[in-house]
Amino acid sequence: MVDFLIGLFLASLIVALFTTRLNGLLLWYAINSLMLGLLALSMGSSIDDDAMILSGVITILMKAIAIPFFLKNISQKFHFSQQIVPKIKVHYAIMLVPVILVFTFYLSEPIVNMIHTHANYMAISISSLFLALLLIMEHSGVVPKVIGFLALENSLFLLGTTATKGMPMLIELGIFFDLLMAIVVINLLFDKEEMRI
């Protein structure tokens, strides 16, 4: 079940990379967050960790529902163009994604010998980190970049849940608080004018 959810997580991220519509991107991000939340829920219930269940619930509520809606509102409010064309050509991207996956597994290979269980999860998290970075760099618009950043945050959570079986409760809450803060700041930055970087 855990492996399945992680697979879906990665898949949704990769699909997001190739999306050319803003709403599509938001959707895939929502699915991505949902998978993360479900993962946390299932892992939390299997090892009976209340903190992880709580964080899974918050993830689903905040990342899978609230933030996509918020961003959608903003994009409608400021009339962002729906068309988002990746700067990196598709054939390069097709090459890059597998290369990143191979590389991260190569990177985490020595760890497998040291800790027995989670090496692969870690590799996946690192590769999703790279993919999120790829997402940021292939778009020039502000909203896709923000989504890329949020995807980055998701990959962090993936690492936190899978590799360490959940961080201390206080820290997780703190991270959520910071995320909230980030959203506020982003909202402030949008202020009036539509900007492109």
Partner: peptide
């Protein structure tokens, strides 16, 4: 423009720090 630049890059940088922290923690 630079505020946005700072927002994105700063956020990436800070996320990387957290990523590293989680790995160290792990």
């Amino acid at each position: 423009k630079e505020a946005w630049n700072y927002m994105i890059v700063g956020a990436i940088a800070v996320s990387l720090i957290l990523f590293g922290i989680i790995l160290m923690y792990a």
